[in-house]
Structures are given as C-alpha cells and as structure tokens.
Write a protein that binds this DNA or RNA. Sequence first.
DNA 1: TTTGACCTGTGAGTAGGTCATAGGTTTTAA
DNA 2: TTAAAACCTATGACCTACTCACAGGTCAAA
Lengths: 143, 143
Amino acid sequence: MKVKELATSAGVNPDTVRFYTRERLLKPSRNPDNNYQQYDTEDLRRLRFARKARQLGFSLPEIRQILDQADDHHSPCPMVRDVFQQRLAEVEREIGELQQLRKRMKTALVAWQDMPDGTPDGRTICRLIEHWDDSKPSKQAEE
Amino acid sequence: MKVKELATSAGVNPDTVRFYTRERLLKPSRNPDNNYQQYDTEDLRRLRFARKARQLGFSLPEIRQILDQADDHHSPCPMVRDVFQQRLAEVEREIGELQQLRKRMKTALVAWQDMPDGTPDGRTICRLIEHWDDSKPSKQAEE
DNA sequence: TTTGACCTGTGAGTAGGTCATAGGTTTTAA
DNA sequence: TTAAAACCTATGACCTACTCACAGGTCAAA
C-alpha cells in the first residue's frame, strides 16, 4: 500500500500517515525502485489502533510505547488499563470544570440583561467582562 | 510601571506581558533614557480585561478586536455578547462530548474486567483498545 | 564596585497535526 | 507518444497561547 491508500483505508489525512511515519508509529518498508513507502496490513492495524487510542486521549508517545511493547511481544494491556484509568479521572475533572464555567456563564448572561452596553470612556472597556465574577469555589480571588 | 510591576499587579507572568505587548494588546510608551517599556493604569486595565476574557474563552485576536474597538470609542459590548453566546454553546457541546466519552469509558472498563490481557500475536495489538466501541450516537461507525 | 535583579529582543519549545514548496514518478487520457 | 494529472519524496512553516532560554544592557543596594 502507498501512503494515500493507507490513509484512505483508515480515514485519515495522508499527511497524518507521513507524520506518524516520521514519529515512528508506523514502520513501512521501501520500494527500492522509486523510494516510495510501502505499508502492509500490519501498518493499517497499527494506524487504526493509534487513531482509536487518540480518541481515548492517549498521547502519541504513549501510543508509540504501547506499539513498541507489542513489537517486543510484551502485552501492553496492563499499561493501557493504567493510562485509561488516569485518563478517565482527567475527563471527569474536565467535565467538572466546564460545568462550573457553564454555570458562571449563564449567571453572567442573566446579569448582563440588565446592564447597558456603554461606550468606553477611559475608565472602563466593557463592563460586561470587567464585572464578570471569576472567583472559583475552590480558592479565593486574588484581588 | 515597568514590566514586572504590571505583571505582578495583574497576577501574570512577565513574559505574558511581553507577549501581549508584541501582540499589540498592550501599547506601552518608551522610556527614552533606557528604552524600557512604560505601562500605565490604562494598560493594567487592558491586561486585566484580557485575562478575564481569556478565562471566558475569547481568543487573543478577538480580545485585540474588542480593545481596538474600545480605542476607537465604539462600544465593544454587543460583539462581546455575541461571541459569548457562541462560546457558551461551544462549552455545552464540549460538555456533552465529554459526558459521552466518560460513559463509553466506564462501559469499556466494565467490559475489560472480563477480557484477558493477551500477548500480541501478530493479529492483534491490544484487544482492550481494538475492541473499544468508538461509535457515536449521532452517526454510524464506518467499518 | 560588584552583585543581583531587572530590562531588551529574538528564537525555540510545547501537541498534534495540516499545509506549502520544490522536485521526482507514475498513471491516465488525448 | 506525449502531456497533464495525480501521486510520491523530504523538509520546514504554521496553528494556540503562552513559557523559557539566551546574550547583552541597565540600575539599585551593599
């Protein structure tokens, strides 16, 4: 398989295939006639694996590590379970932060209904934002 | 005010002040004696404004646009309301996506309890991930 | 006067790609 | 048969919003 065939099979940009090859997640051979990269079904499997792992929040170094372990015939799965647990915790933290943000944004929108726009006058730029309360529940505002 | 004084007043890294100055969000004058940047309380107001806007998800180009409008004595607030509404919708979309992801991760963790690790055998890399169901409720899986 | 803390501009690094460029190869169609 | 279109190569720049490093200039206190 050439670059574009592999990319099409996996549903990614050909440049992503080249990038993953540079990053040594894929290890194609070379066609000695024209110096083109030659990928096989193993590379397709690796690429699909890598894309799924990316969706799960694995970083490229982590994925490379998993693939390298698999090359050495070590089972990467215990490590996968580990990183996966950490990733789940992080996803939940992100959800919590975004929910806080949403709550504060909605509160602000309601408060802003009663505020005039006001042309900047040298003392204020846009009171909609300047009067935004950025305090977080976990720590006091610094100011 | 010199760089570090301004940075301290706003609670940011001095390099951020320098960066914002390069990006023309701050427009200090120069001390002709030593070529140092000279910031005033207006710059402090702009910097605090910019930091609050960043927390709300405004990009630097958007913030620069708001500040430039304020310089021209146009009220930036209608635009702020606009971008803010869009940003709120995006935050809600992100929350939804992350909640989907969390759900699928939890399901996967339960399913994985019953799966053996399995050493890579040339046909599979790590079935924990390869058997991950990445289908999204809004569209069918391609494969 | 020397030390330390500050200042200057510039450039590199971060993550995960995407796009551009310049040049070589292969395939397709006239 | 030939010319264009479509592919390939390697390399480097670009994206965000900073942060850090470097080399050299300035200034205050001891």
